[in-house]
Each structure stands twice: as C-alpha cells, then as structure tokens.
Amino acid sequence: MSEFRKSFHLDALGPLDVTGEARHGQLLLAHGAGAGQDAMFMQRLRAALAERGVQTLAFEFAYMQRMREEGRRRPPPRVERLVDEYAAWRDGVRHLASGPLWLGGKSMGGRVASLLAARDGADGLALCGYPFHPPRKPESLRLDHWPSLACPTLVVQGTRDPFGTREEVAQYALPAGVELHWLEDGEHDWKPRRASGRDQAALIAEGATAIAEAMARDASGDR
C-alpha cells in the first residue's frame, strides 16, 4: 500500500511532515530529547501508524532545528518553553484537523504533550516510552500534572524501560482514564532482547496497533 506523505513549512514554526490518511484520526507527534523525526524509531512508528489509519503530523522543537543548522548537539530548553512551543504547533495545525486531534510523542515529547493536555485539555494522548522518572532515579517522578489529565490517555511502554518498568509503574496511582499497553521485553526504544524471539519492528507494529485502536475507539465513542 502506498503511503501518503507530504512535507511543508508551517508559517514561522518550521517543517511539518504529514504521513498517512486520517481514517482513525490525527496525531500531532513530538520527538524525544536527543533525536529528531529522522530517528529510525520515529520513521518506523510513523509508517506503522499510517498503515493502521492514523495520520501523523510530525514536528521538531526549535532547539532540534538549530542542532541541524549548526551541526552540533545542544540540550533542550526548560520544559515550560517546550510546552509553549507544542501549543504553538497545535494551534498551527488546526486548519489541517478533520476530526479529533490527539497529542503525543516519544519520551520527552510525550511528557511535553501530557503537560500541555493537563494545562489546556486535549482530544487524547498517545505517549510512547513515557519518562516516568530519570533512569536510576525512581524517586523523581514526573506525574504531578497527571491528576489534571481529563482526556483518553494511552501509554505504550516497554516492560524493561529504565524510565519506568512494568513493576515500577504498577505501584503508581494513575488517573482512571489512563490505559497502559505493555510491550513485552522492550526497553526505551522498544527493543527487546534477542532471546525474547521478537524484534523492535514487531514491537513498533504492536505499539502502533494499540494507538490506532485507542483512537478508533475514541472516535466511535466506544470507550
């Protein structure tokens, strides 16, 4: 099946990559802290979502765009600034929305999306590898804003993710509207160990299916 894809420059915000047709809705998708939308994980995730009827609107934060221009790494700015940037992208793609517009992202991008949803509301959230805490710092939880989430929220997480394993997350008191989909043996990029008998592509396909099904249920009112 050929995949619909279009890239263009959105006003003063920067490049926007649109992939897939919105049979089950649209997902405004942010990247993680250290890699942009050209990361293999992000490319494979967008392709898998397109195959399942989810149109992704993929953007990069300004610091990542500067990294490309300068050819050197730089840390992301404070999360509050990223939330404002994400809000600007959300507002900027409104004219492309043909129905529910879910927010989401990988790791840091998902955290920023959740902070924006807690602040302004959202049609839904798809969080891929949510950073519940920094690695090896399980006491530093990033959940203070979660009681304010009032939209359908899906977390797709590897069971071995150092930012929040299945055993750790089981101890958290999460809001009733949060659904967890665990990818067996996956780590932060959803890579399983060879001994599991599966590979990253299979886990990305499973994660994309979970996202598409959650968005389809929400669109039909069946949740």
Rank of each mutant, 00 (worst) to 15 (best):
E85A: 12
E60T: 13
M108S: 03
R90P: 11
D185Y: 02
R217V: 01
A176E: 15
Q26L: 01
A58E: 00
V79F: 04
G36Q: 01
R72C: 13
Q157Y: 06
T56R: 01
R78H: 06
D84V: 12
T159E: 15
G121I: 01
S107D: 08
R44D: 10
L203C: 11
T56Y: 01
I204T: 07
E69H: 11
G32S: 11
W89R: 10
D11P: 10
L174D: 04
A12L: 05
V18N: 02
E69C: 02
D185A: 13
L10C: 11
H31G: 08
P77K: 05
H95M: 04
R94H: 05
E187T: 09
L115T: 13
A195N: 03
A113R: 07
Y63R: 10
T153N: 03
F59I: 15
D222Y: 00
F59H: 11
S2C: 08
Y86A: 14
V79H: 09
A208M: 00
D17W: 07
E80H: 11
E139T: 04
F59P: 11
L141R: 15
G36F: 02
K6R: 15
E85H: 08
L57I: 09
Q37H: 11
D123A: 08
A33S: 13
A201V: 08
F132H: 11
E3D: 09
L125N: 13
P77H: 07
A122T: 07
R223C: 03
M215H: 01
H95R: 14
K191M: 09
G129V: 02
Q37Y: 03
W190R: 04
S220L: 13
A88K: 09
A212G: 09
E69L: 13
P75D: 10
A50K: 00
A117N: 07
R198K: 10
T19P: 04
P135C: 05
A195M: 06
Q65D: 02
G109M: 03
G221S: 13
E213V: 08
L28M: 07
P75F: 06
A39N: 14
D199G: 09
L57F: 10
S107Y: 02
G158M: 01
